[in-house]
Design a protein around this nucleic acid. Structure first.
Lengths: 331, 331
DNA sequence: GTGAAAGCGCTAACAG
DNA sequence: CTGTTAGCGCTTTCAC
């Protein structure tokens, strides 16, 4: 069943049927209705491959992830997928392992026209290269934009999120507040560290470099850091972590050391992944609106897909501090 | 850059270029080499849309999941995606929410030729319908095959896995062994329950229906069940769970009740998801080879994709019992 | 071994 | 408002 068959059944031409399918207003109401009736009756669905060949589009987008080993991404992907599905786009996912060669290989898919656009969660490329890429192809960055690049992006206010969290601790009387940051997602980490330091400074607390540890995002990194903190003469009473996995490791180690987490030491993570509700104690965390991050990222991409000369923009979505047992009772 | 341009540069015809691209042996070695050289030099990649239109294939497959709310699937999807990518297939994922209407809608994509085949992780349809579907279209079931349906599938030996686990407990001296099963994945649950009951019977232990609870796969279901078990006059000393989330809930509740999990009560989960290593105590679990399940599922589908009249088959992949703190010291 | 040409299903320019 | 037609890039007869 093709457009031609429908045309025949309607005593009209393929052009008219095509117009109806594509909502072209230049079709008489009677004709349109007739065509629509036949389409419905025949359960006709236009062949996408034919259309794509003709329009020179793939109707596919690429999502570039640095790793799949992060619970954080699944929900974002759903947001992208749902929104993309609504307007007929397929979503391809690729993992770069933060390797520039792999990243470039996948980005070639844009040049090859294998995909029409790309949403990227991590780039090793320079801001000039990213800017150039975004000038030539629909491209959006999510969560980890490249500094100074001219490109659309969607993020949460990382600095503000940690700033607020830190101020909450300070107002609850904490003087020794530690931070476990990372050496991986440079952009967000930097901002989160800034938020931490600014909150301390603005409240007359000196930044103690012994209370800042940077490593990776593994469970073990969290427990190692907690161990080091607790060996200090003047250990922290609150620990802010840039991920839930780190918080988990830290809490686990604190428990081993006989501390009652939530009472003796407060701990908060980041991303509000499922694990936060399952652990004992349940883990406080800073939530990013993951599904919406995905949807908004695709919406930004769609603007570019429809007209790549449209101006780029950055969207900031609201975060939310979720308090669970690891910061209770009180802060 | 198209096949035509390449032909021109080679002083040959599009037909010959196409033959080279498709490894047609009927091309003179010299010609072939010339064409290959030019293709490499030009970094030419054939347009997939053109090919798909001509061959009437979409080169896409559909993966049908009952829910995305299960850590278990991500790794399987990677296995599918990797293998599919190797042979030029794109993977689309859809969620059915175990709703027959939604399932049917997505399966229509086969009839519409939107996708060339489907790997399904859950079906509500009757075995006749599934058999018919598989007769007409490349179709493979993974993890939860429909009983009595004529269709290719890949699974682990669910009965055997629980049987072995249960026998281990019995040999370690346990007499009161409980099982928390489910009301969702009927196929695997039934087999797992069978394995449990057979192990008991074969070892002269009477099956006590009070020690079998069926509900869903949530954390809370596990804790509720554990609470009930512990109220029994003669509570269990070992609990087998059909998922890690259930095991997590059960363990959490046991801890609340003052039990030392691993010592007072042994608990084992199923699927060996990441959470098992993060919790305290770490959770023993029965591992399925998730990545391989995905790869094998795609391989089965590929056989059907290449020739749908090829006979269907079932592949059984090995499971593995992973002991962690929740079943230690000893069993 | 090779080339010319048809045609997959669709959109869009053009003519009317 | 509607129809005719070219052509997107590719594979595959068919003829040589």
């Amino acid at each position: 069943m093709t457009i031609k068959d429908i045309a025949k059944l309607c005593n009209t031409s393929v052009a008219t049927v095509s117009r109806v399918i594509n909502d072209d207003p230049k079709v008489a109401d009677a004709t349109r209705q007739k065509v629509l009736d036949v389409i419905k009756e025949q359960k006709f669905v236009p062949n996408i491959t034919g259309r794509n060949l003709r329009t020179q589009k793939s109707k596919k987008i690429l999502v570039l992830l640095p790793t799949m080993d992060n619970q954080f991404y699944t929900r974002i992907l759903q947001g992208i997928d749902d929104k993309a599905g609504e307007v007929g786009y397929d979503v391809l996912v690729a993992i770069t392992n933060q390797d520039e060669a792999q990243e470039s290989k996948y980005l070639d898919m844009l040049r090859m026209k294998t995909v029409d656009g790309c949403i990227s969660f991590f780039n090793t490329l320079s801001h000039e290269k990213i800017s150039n890429l975004a000038k030539d192809y629909p491209f959006v960055q999510c969560c980890e934009p490249t500094l100074n690049a001219n490109v659309s992006s969607v993020v949460v206010n990382n600095r503000q999120a940690i700033y607020e969290t830190c101020v909450e601790f300070i107002q609850a009387g904490h003087k020794r507040i530690a931070m476990i940051s990372g050496n991986y997602y440079k952009y967000s980490e930097q901002l989160r560290e800034n938020g931490y330091k600014e909150a301390l400074k603005e409240n007359g607390i000196e930044v103690d470099e012994d209370l800042i540890i940077k490593n990776f995002y593994r469970y073990k990194d969290g427990s190692d850091a907690a161990k080091k903190f607790m060996k200090l003469k003047n250990p922290p009473t609150a620990i802010i972590c840039v991920s839930d996995s780190i918080a988990l490791g830290a809490i686990s180690e604190l428990k081993n050391l006989g501390k009652v987490v939530g009472k003796d030491v407060k701990v908060i993570g980041f991303d509000n992944t499922a694990i936060t509700e399952y652990y004992y104690p349940t883990i406080s965390s800073i939530a990013q609106p993951r599904y919406d991050l995905g949807r908004e990222a695709f919406k930004l991409l769609l603007e570019k897909l429809e007209d790549n000369t449209s101006s780029y923009k950055q969207i900031i979505l609201p975060h939310r501090i979720v308090h669970r047992e690891s910061t209770k009772p009180s802060l």
